[in-house]
Design a protein around this nucleic acid. Structure first.
Lengths: 236, 236
DNA sequence: CGGTTCAATATGTATAGACATATTCGCGAG
DNA sequence: CTCGCGAATATGTCTATACATATTGAACCG
């Protein structure tokens, strides 16, 4: 009853192994000859699957060396506000992250976001301030699921901001962003050194890895300070 | 000196014909057998090119019938705020567009945006208000290049808002969006029925077709009224 | 010891042929 | 005239084979 063509099945299985993290970036995917043996098919069939994965950017192929799980480009998924730190230093400004609060605890049973992330397990709950050129640049509130990302328990988010840390440690995620504009509440205005009511760009992003919720972040940017740029067109 | 493989060349040439609009949506692409003859190669080579185009969503293939230039899904390019009208009616609210100003003229020689769009030719310059459920929803300022889209000269933008009209008449575009938050100026606040200084979501989008600039639009949304949602992940 | 050459190897491209499958068209029966 | 069925057709999948090309590692030589 397999209406699924073989090259598709090979492709899907490898894609699953990559996206789930079972094969980390840099891992050497089996050679075409090995996959031929494993699936009992011809090289062209394996090749079709692997070429498609390479075109999709999940693997990188090198003659004579083999095929490897790609290291996702930091800028991969457009608009992701990929890495505020990288963004700022690329502009030539100094960057700092001030961790305002950090705790580890189970989900608040009244908070849907927290329950979705933590399940029965625990969360990391963070608040921090991104600082560019000495001036406040963004306020960030973040939740991280410890059941999906146990390594987060021992990460030092004062040294490496959580966004950057997650990008480096949890590749191949999917994300959904909601973007809106809000006026600054009093305590936010104070933290960002703005007048109360000033226009802020609000970004809320939720991220999954192979269907498992990884993190949820809310970021507030002074409206004038940040332009979110998204470009759509031919990938190559 | 063609380091370009043949299947890639076939793919690129067809992609160019589609993206430039030379082959409109619905056009029947030559059969594999015809392309075999045209390029003097085997069917597998043609097939590789066509399969890739199909996967990229540029063409649709139907057994026995042939291959056709795809009709781009309105929602294709994420985050494009594709069609405000469609968005609003999908929510079950009534939609209206009030055209506040429309003119046709050469580019202002002091305005870079206008010159880029018009070149030596003329522009359509529009201002309009999107209205949802009887209340102002967005203010839109738009430029359209008449040299790239001559049909725009005879379009009735009071009947069909310019965003929707362009989506239906100029497929296969690329776009770049800049998103920020601003406080409402007095005249904007009045048009949108808000207090001056209220937080607005500002979207500026520029669109190209095969490298030619098509349109540039600035839209202002009441921050609380609109959530821009962008989702990133497996395309299929 | 350093550098060059060369052969081994994994992927890249292309071919010809075969059979499967979905869809359409036309023909013939009712 | 309509319905159903079968033949024609374009794409979908897969095989076996061949040669090209980039890269690596090791043998070889100065």
């Amino acid at each position: 009853m397999s209406a699924v063509p073989l090259h598709q099945r090979i492709r899907d299985e490898i894609e699953g192994l990559v996206r789930s993290g079972a094969w980390a970036p840099g891992y050497r995917v089996p050679f075409e000859s090995e996959l031929m043996a494993q699936y009992g098919c011809s090289r062209m069939t394996v090749n079709k699957a692997m070429s498609a994965l390479a075109e999709a950017g999940l693997i990188v192929r090198r003659r004579r060396a083999g095929s490897f799980v790609a290291r996702p480009k930091v800028h991969s998924t457009v608009l992701d506000i990929p890495d505020i730190q990288a963004e700022i230093t690329a502009r030539g400004e100094t960057y700092a992250f001030r961790l305002l609060a950090a705790e580890r605890r189970p989900a608040d049973p009244d908070d849907g976001d927290e329950i979705e992330l933590a399940g029965e397990g625990e969360l990391i709950v963070l608040r921090g301030l991104h600082i560019a050129g000495g001036r406040p640049f963004a306020l960030e509130d973040r939740l991280i699921s410890l059941s999906v990302v146990p390594e987060a328990a021992t990460a030092d988010f004062a040294a490496e901001p959580p966004g950057a840390w997650l990008l480096h440690h949890v590749p191949w995620t999917e994300a959904e962003s909601r973007i809106s504009a809000v006026g600054a509440e009093a305590f936010v205005a104070e933290l960002l050194a703005l007048d109360p009511g000033a226009a802020l760009l609000a970004v809320e992003r939720r991220t999954w890895r192979a269907g498992e919720p990884v993190t949820r972040v809310r970021q507030l940017f002074p409206g004038e300070a940040y332009d979110l740029v998204a470009r759509f067109g031919p990938a190559r």
